[in-house]
């Protein structure tokens, strides 16, 4: 199935990406080609087949309900592009 530029623009927003005009064009072509290949999955009869989300189907792996040490705040903030020592800083979202 061919993807349109509008499809790709919409997905770029969902994926929080920005694409230049040229990238948008290349991406539309390449995704169309890849999705076209992937479309062959449609020919497989999967009637009554349970989806397999994981290679090892373990369920309910519980940890003991006890407090373990967690990452100190300083270490958690150390790699942040902007922080004030207490929390992460993001661009202003609300106007005056």
């Amino acid at each position: 199935m061919a993807l349109t530029r509008a499809d790709v623009e919409k997905v770029a927003l969902l994926a929080r990406l920005r694409l230049t005009e040229t990238e948008l064009e290349t991406m539309t072509d390449q995704l169309t080609q890849i999705v076209g290949y992937v479309d062959q999955l449609g020919e497989v009869d999967t009637e009554g087949v349970e989806p397999m989300a994981h290679a090892v189907e373990v369920v309910n792996v519980f940890a003991a309900d006890k407090v373990e040490p967690s990452l100190p705040r300083e270490a958690a903030l150390a790699n942040a592009p902007r922080h004030n020592g207490r929390g992460y800083l993001v661009p202003a979202v609300l106007g005056e």
Binding site: L3, D7, V8, K10, V11, A12, L14, A15, L17, L19, E23, M27, Q30, L31, I34, V35, V38, L41, G42, V44, T46, V49, E50, P51, M52, A53
Partner: peptide
């Protein structure tokens, strides 16, 4: 970027069943 786009597309409304869920069934086969 290409893989993020591809994945976001396969998981987006209207395509989830045809791509992601279908692929998981083929995986079991």
């Amino acid at each position: 970027k290409r893989r993020i786009m591809l994945g976001a597309y396969a998981l987006s409304a209207g395509y989830y069943d045809a791509y992601y869920l279908k692929a998981l069934k083929v995986r079991r086969l």
